[in-house]
């Protein structure tokens, strides 16, 4: 996993609420057996005309004035399926941070396991950011993982981040490394609880 320490970037506003994983990456694109290439179909059915496959000029990712590595989305982002392909599609497209006022549980975990940082802000601050970047797409957002802070247009808010996950992000570690290092304790637990299936 790549390290994520600070990021300062322009951002893309997507104010819709309850954006589910079927919108982020529709099921028909889950047939791949590797992790690459999902960015091409990120928000597929909003981003492209269903019939012609042409980019939909109304959709924010197709508006040239909006760019950046931060996506700012409406409440309850990432609800629905557990498909990690949603996180892969977002990172493959180039996003490093998602800002919203609420994230669905499984998506949040999947994002963190891929070095994609979900930043939960207050509903008021989300509104300020969404309006701000919509009116002036040049404005930038700064996210500092160490400080757990997000700054926009002179305003700063702190966000929650599990201390363990913070160490992972700052150092580029992931859970497998950690779990493997605890193999002895796991085997002792199996013996203690007689969970030996061998």
């Amino acid at each position: 996993m790549k390290k994520l320490i600070t990021i300062q970037s322009r951002a893309i506003p997507l104010p819709a609420e309850n954006i589910d994983t079927d919108q982020i990456i529709p099921a028909r694109f889950l047939k791949s057996i590797d992790r690459k290439g999902f960015g091409n179909n990120l928000f597929r059915d909003w981003r492209f005309n269903v019939h012609t496959g042409e980019p939909n000029p109304e959709f924010v990712l197709n508006k040239p004035e909006f760019t950046g590595e931060i996506l700012v989305a409406g409440n309850n982002f990432g609800c629905g399926s557990s498909r990690e392909h949603a996180a892969w599609a977002l990172t493959d497209y180039g996003f490093k941070v998602i800002v919203s006022s609420y994230f669905a549980d499984i998506f949040k975990g999947n994002a963190l396991n891929n070095g994609l940082l979900p930043v939960k802000v207050s509903e008021d601050f989300l509104k300020v950011i969404l309006e701000g970047i919509t009116n002036d797409p040049q404005l930038e957002i700064r996210v500092d993982v160490e400080q757990q802070s997000v700054t926009f247009n002179g305003k700063t808010e702190n966000f929650e981040l599990d201390s363990y996950k913070k160490i992972c992000l700052l150092n580029g570690y992931d859970d497998i490394d950690f779990l493997i290092s605890r193999k002895k304790a796991i085997q002792e637990f199996e013996l203690k609880t007689q969970k030996i299936y061998e």
Binding site: S82, R83, E84, H85, A87, I106, G109, N110, N113, N114, Y164, D174, D175, I176, F178, L179, I180, R182, K183, I186, E190
Partner: peptide, 16 residues
Amino acid sequence: IGTSQVAQVFASQCLL
């Protein structure tokens, strides 16, 4: 669980 967690369970039969 997500696929990264599927890999974690494969590797350790555990999750964090």
